[in-house]
Simulated scan of single mutants.
Amino acid sequence: MPRTTRKATIYDIARLSGASPSTVSAALGESWRKRRIAESTVEAIRQIAADQGYSANMQARGLRKARSGLVGMVIPLHDNRFFSSMSQSFEAFARERGLVPVIASSMREPEEERRIVETLISYAVDYLFIAGATDPDAVTTMCRSANLRHIFVDLPGRGAPSVVSDNAKGAADLTRRLLADHPMTGTTPRDRIYLIGGDATDYASAQRIAGFRAVLTESGLKPHPDQVIACGYAPRSAMREIAALCDRLGGLPAGIFVNSLTVLEGVLNHLSGLPLEDLRASVIGCYDYDPFAAYLQFPVHMVRQDAHGLIREAYRMIDENSLDLVLKMVEPELIAPRTFYDSPFSDRG
């Protein structure tokens, strides 16, 4: 069987052997007898592993008798204010505890996420934090095989404690604020508020959409299916969708709920070509936060997730040795907008 040019992973061996990743992990460790895996299966898996040049750090397996003093964190991206703030807090809390932080980005790729987790396990990290996990079940399988305590942050996992933003409440607060600033009757399509961006199958977006729709309902504004435009997070996609929406409506809608900063980037690319009076006649909110929004020439309400609070709560669970599969919610903060003319860069007045 030909050797691969990169380091083989448990998932490569699972694919080649036809066994599950958890079976491969047990066969390469010491738990295969306990799981009653056939010896012939174990031998076949180990032979494939040898052919592929797979090696596992046995220090990271079994009882993990020694502490390394390392604590690992996987984040989706570095060039994102929310995740960069989270990693800074993670590092600060680690150093307070005398631990050395190790942080890596998965680029939102499940295979890369698994590779990073496997590498961190091989370095015998004492704990592992996974932010915005793309494949939480696979991460839990790997961590349990290595007897490694792990915790999910931002997006939940079923196999370990999770600390996430209260996305539904944050979206509800933002929607109420938009409605308060610009009461809408909903009698015509243009006289409605529209949520744009995100993936309806994604946990965070699904919670935000639920909060958005709940407030419309409680306000007597029956949600219409076309009021949610879940077009993903890419700026170009958002720019196309907001342009198409304005074409359909004959102008800007009464309100826009933007589902992330990257989506806001695309929306602003379209809005920048519109008359300022049109922008000020609409109310705009963003479920994300960037202080530079204060210098726009029209107000934008924003929701700031508590990155520091999420990490603080995750470390508290680690410190208390909490093994319960709890889902802890941390409330985000609604930030009141400043207009361009409130800023020190304005020469008006």
Rank of each mutant, 00 (worst) to 15 (best):
P225E: 11
D226A: 11
I151C: 10
P161Y: 03
S165Q: 09
G198A: 04
A172G: 15
A168G: 12
H150G: 07
K169N: 12
L155M: 13
R213N: 14
S165P: 07
A214V: 08
P183R: 13
A180W: 00
R149F: 12
V153K: 02
E218P: 11
V163M: 03
R190A: 15
D181Q: 14
Y203Q: 02
G159Q: 00
Y194R: 00
P161R: 05
A171I: 06
G157C: 05
M184L: 15
K222P: 08
D173F: 04
P189C: 03
H224S: 10
L155I: 13
H224I: 05
R176Y: 04
R208M: 13
A206G: 13
Q227R: 04
F212L: 08
I209V: 14
A206F: 07
D181N: 14
A168N: 11
R176A: 15
D226P: 04
G197W: 00
G220Q: 08
A180H: 08
Q227C: 08
R190C: 04
Q207G: 13
L179C: 07
R176V: 10
H224A: 14
R192C: 03
D173K: 10
A180V: 06
S162K: 05
N167Y: 14
H150C: 14
H224W: 12
M184Y: 10
A171M: 08
I209T: 06
Y203I: 05
M184H: 10
D199C: 00
G198E: 02
I209H: 07
D181V: 11
I193T: 11
L174R: 01
V163Y: 00
G157K: 02
S205M: 09
F152H: 01
A180M: 10
P225K: 08
T201K: 15
D166L: 11
S165N: 14
R192K: 04
L221Y: 02
L216V: 09
D181R: 15
D166Y: 14
V153N: 01
D181W: 09
A160I: 05
R190I: 14
P225Q: 07
A210C: 07
S205F: 02
R192F: 00
T201L: 12
L155G: 07
V153M: 02
R208L: 12
I193N: 06
L221Q: 05
S165E: 10
